[in-house]
Computed example of a mutant assay.
Amino acid sequence: MLRVLVPVNGSAHALDAVRHAAFMFRDRCVSEVVLLNVQPPLESGRASAFHSLAALRKLEAASGEAALRDARSILDDAGASYVAQIKVGDVAQTIARAAAANDCDAIVMGTAGRTAVGALLAGRLTNKLIRMSRVPVTLVK
């Protein structure tokens, strides 16, 4: 059976992908789900002038846990087997690396942005990820 990686950022679109993965688990198509939240590094911004690196990592972890909360609830309700991870870095690169590191067979992610700008930004991320990933990427609308 398959192990799928589902990147989540707390958005409704990401939760649609989690629901799809839960459905696939219930249908016995998926054996395990890897939930992944990617935080952009805070030390590259102004926050590094006011906080220590340790404090910034705590903020990133808290933001990651908040983004994972609803996704965990969906998978718990479905009785799905899953692991949750929070990583810091470039979103597309980190997702591709996490899929490889966790021996995932596929990536399932939600489409983002129903506005023109949101669709453009989501398309850039998706295209970059498709080029970098060694596994299939499925988009859930």
Rank of each mutant, 00 (worst) to 15 (best):
M1C: 02
L2K: 15
L5M: 05
V6I: 08
G10D: 08
S11M: 06
H13D: 08
A14S: 12
L15Y: 04
D16M: 12
A17C: 07
A17M: 08
R19Y: 01
A22C: 09
M24I: 00
M24Y: 06
V30D: 03
V30P: 03
V34M: 06
P40Y: 03
P41F: 01
P41Y: 03
L42D: 08
S44N: 01
R46M: 06
A49Q: 11
F50L: 15
L53F: 07
L53G: 07
K58V: 04
K58C: 06
E60Q: 14
S63L: 11
G64E: 05
E65V: 02
R69I: 01
D70Q: 15
A71R: 10
A71L: 08
R72F: 04
S73T: 13
I74R: 09
D76V: 01
A78R: 05
A80D: 02
A80V: 04
V83M: 00
A84Q: 11
I86E: 08
D90I: 12
V91M: 03
V91I: 14
R97V: 11
R97M: 13
A98H: 13
A101P: 08
A101V: 07
A101L: 14
D105T: 03
A106M: 15
A106T: 04
M109P: 01
T111V: 07
T111A: 13
T111M: 02
R114D: 13
R114Y: 11
T115D: 15
A116I: 13
A116H: 02
A119L: 08
L120Y: 10
L120G: 07
A122R: 02
G123T: 07
T126F: 00
T126H: 11
I130A: 12
R131N: 07
S133W: 03
S133Y: 05
R134W: 01
R134D: 08
V135S: 05
P136M: 13
P136V: 10
L139D: 02
